[in-house]
Design a protein around this nucleic acid. Structure first.
Lengths: 147, 147
DNA sequence: CCAAAATAATTACCCAGGTAATTATTATTT
DNA sequence: AAATAATAATTACCTGGGTAATTATTTTGG
């Protein structure tokens, strides 16, 4: 009965791709990408985190996180320190990254503003709320895979 | 002033990934993937299309579309016919694909239903409308890259 | 009519995310 | 204490999307 679900899901997918594109454009001058920015942003807020914690926070699997972190290490924006538990690697921003962070953030916020201008403020709030609730339900495992 | 834009955009990205994962799960028994399904679905509705038209309809660049179509050809679900204009390739479903389509669609709809259950009906409509308007604005090129 | 511009599709090469299998280390169990 | 199980991260390999450059064909302009 709900054939329009195709359309809704496809719309969400396209919107997500388009937003990613804008973000990458904004980050391009700094040699950064979408996935790297999300890690830098979390580290700025949370301080030191293990890779596992980063994965959980960003809801990304371990392998792509390893790759993203390795790129950030190569660029000198992130440091890895072995913990007492030698399996864990603690990740934190370098001084260089802390120094450049404000410029990155300004560029990202400016790009976000431009895109958000096309969306009335009350729509933004509604959208955020609907998506948060939905994602919460999905994460909570309310979708039964059997049956 | 809108620091929460980070959160909104990230939420959309995660939601999109999660929905893609559910769709891929539903298609897995048929050896199909997300991107393939979107092409099959459009072809079922529209009949024969050129690759260019498929790209425009799905808002995907040409190279990934080439790849997706080549996989569908290999699986015997799609045929390519050179047109009068030899640059263009006309794509259509094979009889095999038409035959199996109902099973695919049933599986996808069932999966969609499960996910949509977590979202009240009025939220679905609101979501669809907000996203459609927004995407339209983005596509319309209202985002100025200069300045 | 022929050279130049435009177009459709492809190739090559990026980034991003996923699963399965592997490795090194730590925790548990017996 | 030694064997087994669990955990964090990595490696290998897949799909999916993007840009830049290339190829083949068709249109356009001089």
């Amino acid at each position: 009965m709900r054939e329009n679900s195709h359309i809704l899901f496809h719309s969400i997918h396209q919107l997500s791709r388009q937003l990613t594109r804008y973000l990458n454009e904004a980050l391009e001058p700094f040699g950064l990408y979408n996935a790297q920015w999300s890690v830098l942003f979390v580290l700025k807020e949370k301080g030191t985190l293990t890779q596992k914690e980063l994965c959980e926070y960003l809801a990304v699997e371990a392998p792509p996180m390893t790759r993203t972190i390795q790129r950030l290490v190569k660029q000198g924006y992130v440091e890895q320190q072995a913990g007492v538990d030698k399996r864990k690697k603690h990740i934190q921003l370098t001084a260089k990254a802390v120094g450049e962070f404000p410029a990155w953030e300004a560029a990202v916020l400016e790009a976000n503003e431009k895109v958000l201008k096309l969306l009335p403020e009350n729509s933004q709030e509604a959208l955020q709320q609907i998506i948060s609730e939905w994602t919460l339900g999905l994460k909570g495992g309310a979708v039964d895979k059997r049956d």
